[in-house]
Amino acid sequence: MTNQPPPLLQVRDLRKHYLRPQRWLRPAMPAIKAVDGVSFSVARGETLALVGESGCGKTTTAKAVLRLIEPDAGSVQLDGQELLTLSAREMRLRRRQMQIIFQDPYASLDPRLKAGAIVAEPLRNFGSGTAPEQRERVQWLLARVGLRPEAVKKFPHEFSGGQRQRLGIARALALNPRLIVCDEPVSALDVSVQAQVVNLLMDLQAEFGIAYLFVAHDLAVVRHISHRVAVMYLGQIVEIADRDPLFTAPLHPYTEILLASAPVPNPHLRTRRLLLQGDPPSPANPPAGCRFHTRCPIAQPICATTVPALGTRPATTQATRGEHQVACHFR
């Protein structure tokens, strides 16, 4: 049995609760448990996709990992070093190795700066190279993401949506990071442009060995780009597995329903539709026990009282390379 190298990113019991302001003569409002005990790891050169319905805590988890949002508790280790105990100065030095691609490429780019200045800004902030070296690096990055040399003199509003996202990718690559958080990077793009950007991310990963934490709604994109998938529901991870076993043989009832809700690109193919019953519970007052039991088709009395642990299950298919973990009493 060969020893596997330690993961690049290790997240344990991450928590982020938002306190709501207390109003005069009103009882205190419970905190919103946006992220409540999330644990996962990302290997070097791997893509871990984080999926789930809106409001489940995917983006909050991603930003908490980078400390763009300060977590309340837990552990985040990058290459074995704990990030949550670092000072602001120490954390700034680590940011060279971890970058982010935002969902809205227009809102994440400074409209007052030209493309060349946007890509060069990380290089200037960290004093990476001389001015001629920075200009050469910017030209190389723009060409690598598929933008023409004259793009260096254009403002963000002069680009299309796909070109702006390519510009954001170039900026994220400027400092040669080891981890890039992709916060729904293709959700605002046309389908044809989505494919181009996803293929670009995969090519860059193969070339530079970058690890991605990929937050997404589109399961087709997730199936194309990811190596492993983590499914979130109401602030917690309910299932983690390699991509193929999760899509072909999901274990958690929520994952089954989530996959069944994806549209099938064949109007003549009839599929059994699984629909979620009821409304999503509030993250300020999540149900006791299993958080999914109020909408689960196989729920039993134990589900309302006992929290299921995220445990490893036997391999469901021969394609399974790693562990298949699920938080369910009956799976």
Rank of each mutant, 00 (worst) to 15 (best):
P71I: 04
P71F: 04
D72E: 12
D72I: 07
A73T: 09
G74D: 06
G74W: 06
S75T: 13
S75I: 10
V76M: 09
V76H: 01
V76D: 07
Q77V: 10
L78G: 01
L78W: 01
L78R: 01
L78S: 02
L78F: 00
D79Y: 08
D79M: 10
D79G: 12
G80R: 11
G80P: 11
Q81D: 14
Q81C: 12
Q81R: 15
E82F: 11
E82Y: 11
L83D: 03
L83V: 02
T85Q: 14
T85P: 04
T85I: 05
L86T: 08
S87G: 15
S87Y: 05
S87C: 05
S87F: 05
A88R: 15
A88I: 11
R89M: 08
R89T: 14
R89H: 13
R89C: 07
R89G: 02
E90M: 11
E90R: 13
E90H: 12
E90K: 13
E90A: 15
M91Q: 05
R92S: 13
R92G: 14
R92D: 11
L93Q: 15
L93G: 14
R94D: 07
R94N: 10
R94F: 04
R94S: 06
R94L: 13
R96D: 03
R96F: 07
R96G: 03
R96E: 04
R96C: 01
R96S: 06
Q97R: 14
Q97F: 03
Q99T: 11
Q99W: 08
Q99M: 11
I100A: 06
I100M: 00
I100W: 03
I100L: 03
I100N: 01
I101C: 03
F102I: 08
F102N: 02
Q103R: 01
Q103A: 02
Q103F: 00
D104A: 12
D104W: 05
P105W: 01
P105V: 07
Y106R: 02
Y106H: 09
A107F: 13
A107K: 09
S108W: 05
S108F: 00
L109Q: 09
L109V: 14
D110T: 10
D110L: 10
D110S: 13
D110R: 04
D110H: 08
P111N: 11
P111F: 08
P111E: 10
